[in-house]
Amino acid sequence: MKKIEAIIKPFKMDDVREALAEVGVSGMTVTEVKGFGRQKGHTELYRGAEYNVDFLPKMKLEVVLPESQVELAIEAIMKTAQTGKIGDGKIFVYEVERVIRIRTGEENEDAV
């Protein structure tokens, strides 16, 4: 099993969720996060004063999948989250050693 973490632009979240549902992803965890990469934030104007915004709002999406679904999920995220502009985000893929559903005690793929 693998865990996919994707950091994407907030306005792309609904599109990504729908695309993942289409390829069979049944559950996910989503967190509002802030951060920056190469874009290093940006400058905004508020009441005539300019100020720097270092940490930009992003969404962090986490899913745990069987190996057979990983490439489909990655393709779905890339296709729907990509705008072609700086700050589109990143996808991280991790190995998952063990998963346990607390309610039933099911393990691994049965627990996902």
Rank of each mutant, 00 (worst) to 15 (best):
R47E: 10
R38A: 02
A19N: 03
N52F: 14
V64E: 01
E97A: 06
K34I: 15
T80P: 11
G48D: 04
V93E: 04
V96Y: 04
T80K: 14
L72M: 15
R98A: 12
D15Y: 03
F92P: 09
V93K: 04
V112K: 03
L65I: 08
G37Y: 01
E67V: 08
D110Q: 08
N108W: 09
A76C: 15
Y46M: 10
V112S: 04
K85V: 08
K79F: 04
K2F: 13
K60M: 10
Y51K: 14
I86H: 03
A73N: 09
V25M: 11
K40Y: 09
E18Q: 12
S26T: 14
A19W: 00
V63P: 00
E32R: 14
E75D: 09
M1K: 12
L56N: 01
L65A: 05
D15A: 09
E75F: 03
E22K: 15
K2I: 13
V33F: 07
V53E: 00
E67H: 07
M78R: 13
K34N: 15
G37R: 02
F11D: 15
L72Q: 15
I7M: 13
A111Y: 01
Q39A: 10
D15N: 01
E18N: 13
N52E: 13
E109D: 12
E18K: 14
V53Y: 01
R103P: 01
A81G: 05
R101T: 12
V23L: 07
E109K: 11
E5Y: 10
K58W: 05
S26H: 11
E71R: 08
G89C: 08
K3T: 10
P57G: 07
M78F: 11
A21V: 14
I91A: 00
K3I: 11
K9V: 04
K40P: 03
R38N: 02
H42I: 14
K58A: 04
V25L: 12
K58P: 05
V64N: 00
T104G: 06
E62S: 10
I8P: 10
Q69T: 03
V112M: 10
D54E: 11
V23E: 02
R101A: 12
V63D: 00
F36H: 13
G48T: 01
D110F: 02
F55T: 00
V112E: 02
M13W: 02
L61I: 02
M1C: 09
V16W: 02
E22G: 12
N52Q: 14
M78G: 06
A111K: 01
T43N: 11
P10G: 08
G35A: 05
A81Y: 03
R38P: 00
G37H: 02
L20C: 03
K9A: 04
S26A: 13
M28V: 05
L72W: 15
E109C: 09
T104Q: 09
E97N: 09
K9M: 08
S68D: 10
E75P: 03
I77R: 09
G27V: 07
